[in-house]
Structures are given as structure tokens and as C-alpha cells.
Computed example of a mutant assay.
Amino acid sequence: MPEPFAPEREFTMRFTSTPRGARLARRLVSHRLHDWGHPYTTPVNETLTLITAELSANAVRHGHVPGRDFHLQLNLTEGTFRIEVTDTRAEKRPPATPPATDSLSESGRGLLLVAALADDWGVSPRRAAPGKTVWAELHVRTQGHPLTHRVAPGPTDLDLLLATASLLRDDRGSRPEDASRGGRRP
């Protein structure tokens, strides 16, 4: 079996299985990507932050076991970002294909977003313990922009993506550059 390539960049951390833990995971991934040369408003940062938000929220909502944290790992290896979110609940695995949701439903679109934004995603058993890892990959060019091999989403999917992205934007004053203005945005 060939040896896997060592990641060029890696970020890993455990978070509490709470909405606050999911929000912190999203923010730290965004900050880490910024530090790695993918500023906050770039497509790579925004895409991976949204994927992180969805996978972390699912770990909290569907993979929560009282007293257990979820684990997040972000790697960059040979132009591919891989985000992994691991929880301790093995019996609640997401479906291989995200199910269609009712247009009036207020939830159930997280994996549809992940499937639309990521180049690949899946679920694997957790290594050395009960649970599962939900992962997603995003291939990037050397300039830091996602490759465009995906099929463009239809108008209704795009509306859904924009609406969801606007809900996930950080609160005022949450980004480091906002701190100098006292949390006020222009």
C-alpha cells in the first residue's frame, strides 16, 4: 500500500459538541486559512468556511454524545484541502447521497450544500474508536482559487447557497480587522 503524502499545512483541534463549539470551529478554520494565504473574502476561504460550518453543525446536531467533543482536522496536501469532522456517534451516518428536501423545510440542506461546494465528500468509520468522520475535499489552483470542474448550481440552488451563506456571516466585530473600528462596519 503506498504511503500517503504528508500534508503541507495542517490544523487540528477538538471542540465541544455545542453550537458555540461549531461556531468556534468555523471561525478558527477561516482564520487559519487567512494565515495560510487565503484571505477572508477569497473563494477558498469562504467555501471551506461554509463547508466547515455545515459539517460542524451536523456533528453537534446529529453526532452529539453527552460529554464527548467533536474533532476537526484541516489539511492542505498537493493543492487539495481536506476538512474532516469526527464525532463519536457511529449509528447516525449521513446518507451517501443527500436527500431532497421540502422547499418549505427550515433544515436538512447541509449535506446538499457540502455536495454542491466540495469536489468530493464522504463518510468513513472513526479510526481506533466508535464514531464516524465526515470529510470534504476542495481542489485549488496554486493562486488559491477553487478549480471550476463542478457543474454550476441552478437558480434555486444558488438562492439557497446565498441565503445560507448570509446566515453564517460572522457577527459584527468578530473579525480581527473589525476590532480596530470597534466592531463597526463601514
Score class of each variant (00 low, 15 high):
113 L>H: 08
167 L>I: 08
102 D>H: 09
123 V>K: 01
66 P>H: 11
28 L>Y: 04
29 V>D: 00
60 V>S: 03
47 T>I: 14
13 M>L: 13
178 D>H: 08
129 A>Y: 03
11 F>N: 07
180 S>Y: 00
64 H>L: 15
58 N>P: 03
154 G>T: 11
4 P>M: 10
185 R>G: 13
138 L>H: 10
178 D>F: 08
147 L>G: 04
106 E>I: 13
36 W>M: 06
81 F>V: 05
67 G>W: 00
15 F>K: 04
2 P>A: 13
51 I>V: 15
184 R>C: 12
10 E>P: 02
65 V>L: 15
5 F>C: 06
15 F>P: 04
82 R>M: 10
168 L>C: 07
35 D>C: 08
24 L>H: 05
65 V>P: 02
9 R>F: 13
179 A>M: 14
76 L>E: 00
120 D>H: 04
157 D>H: 03
126 R>W: 02
101 T>G: 01
79 G>A: 12
65 V>M: 14
72 L>F: 10
39 P>R: 02
41 T>E: 12
97 T>Q: 09
79 G>Y: 00
35 D>G: 02
54 E>R: 03
150 R>W: 02
116 A>L: 15
143 Q>P: 02
138 L>V: 15
28 L>D: 02
25 A>N: 09
181 R>Y: 07
144 G>F: 05
69 D>M: 14
105 S>H: 00
32 R>T: 14
84 E>T: 07
99 P>V: 11
137 E>Q: 12
79 G>M: 07
144 G>R: 07
144 G>M: 01
113 L>W: 09
90 A>G: 04
50 L>E: 06
9 R>G: 07
69 D>A: 14
17 S>P: 07
171 D>A: 15
165 A>F: 02
125 P>D: 06
60 V>H: 02
69 D>S: 14
95 P>E: 00
44 V>C: 14
43 P>K: 05
10 E>A: 13
127 R>P: 08
122 G>Q: 02
94 P>M: 06
107 S>A: 13
18 T>W: 03
48 L>H: 11
12 T>A: 15
136 A>W: 02
163 A>C: 09
75 N>I: 12
61 R>M: 10
126 R>C: 03
36 W>E: 11
98 P>Q: 09
78 E>P: 02
41 T>H: 08
144 G>T: 00
63 G>K: 06
37 G>A: 12
62 H>T: 00
11 F>C: 05
98 P>M: 11
180 S>C: 12
18 T>K: 05
63 G>R: 00
170 D>S: 14
153 P>F: 10
28 L>G: 06
2 P>V: 14
43 P>T: 00
100 A>L: 15
9 R>M: 13
167 L>Q: 09
162 L>R: 09
111 L>R: 07
109 R>Q: 04
